[in-house]
């Protein structure tokens, strides 16, 4: 089975190699082969792949297709984390438990770096995984909550294009909002 673990270059780049990808949970389960933008091949169980609305509609158009599904906008690293999320999610489909689901979701984002979260957002969006997109957006919002403007800028890598006068004016207009900032 092809997986990221076979590619030493990629493994060096991924901080937490997703060993789960290589783990077979059920031998009989139908696998779907997906190819990422950086030419990594992922074989995922059909039930997991159907969590990706984009992939699901691909198979609705061609139900008997055994072709590799290309994912041109999806790099391997965030994709392996997205798979990790979806594997957790499908457990709750059979066994809905909102409290446990929330806990699992917050556990998932807790151990992710800012970079991880940000890389996953476009992937979740492209694959149309609404729940994940929601969880990621919330996680990013939580991480910038009550932080300084400078922190938010560096978090998102955005250059300040206000003149110092313009910025001072904005800050003055909403002075209360710039008090009690959390430490960076």
């Amino acid at each position: 089975m092809s997986s990221s673990a076979e590619n030493p270059t990629l493994t060096a780049e991924i901080t937490k190699p997703s060993t789960e990808i290589a783990t077979e949970t059920a031998q009989s389960a139908k696998k779907i082969t997906l190819k990422t933008s950086d030419d990594q091949i992922f074989e995922v169980e059909e039930s997991v792949a159907m969590e990706f609305a984009t992939v699901k509609s691909f198979f609705e158009d061609a139900p008997s297709s055994t072709d590799t599904v290309p994912l041109p906008n999806v790099p391997a690293k965030p994709f392996s984390q997205v798979i990790e999320f979806c594997k957790e999610q499908i457990k709750f489909k059979a066994n809905p438990d909102e409290t446990e689901k929330k806990r699992s979701n917050s556990e998932f984002v807790k151990e992710k770096t800012n970079e991880d979260l940000v890389e996953m957002i476009p992937v979740a969006n492209y694959l149309e995984i609404k729940d994940l997109l929601d969880v990621l957006n919330q996680a990013v919002a939580d991480r910038i909550q009550n932080r300084s403007v400078e922190y938010v800028r560096s978090f998102f890598g955005i250059d300040n294009d206000f003149t110092s006068e313009e910025e001072a004016l904005l800050r003055e207009e909403h002075a209360w909002a710039f008090e009690d900032v959390d430490e960076d």
Partner: peptide
């Protein structure tokens, strides 16, 4: 996608206003 993040801050005008100072686009 950026505005989707802001939509999570609707109950937090303070952070929203700070975000507005990040850049003109924001």
């Amino acid at each position: 996608l950026t505005t989707k993040i802001f939509s999570k801050l609707e109950d937090d005008p303070k952070t929203l206003i700070r975000c507005s100072t990040v850049s003109k686009k924001w």
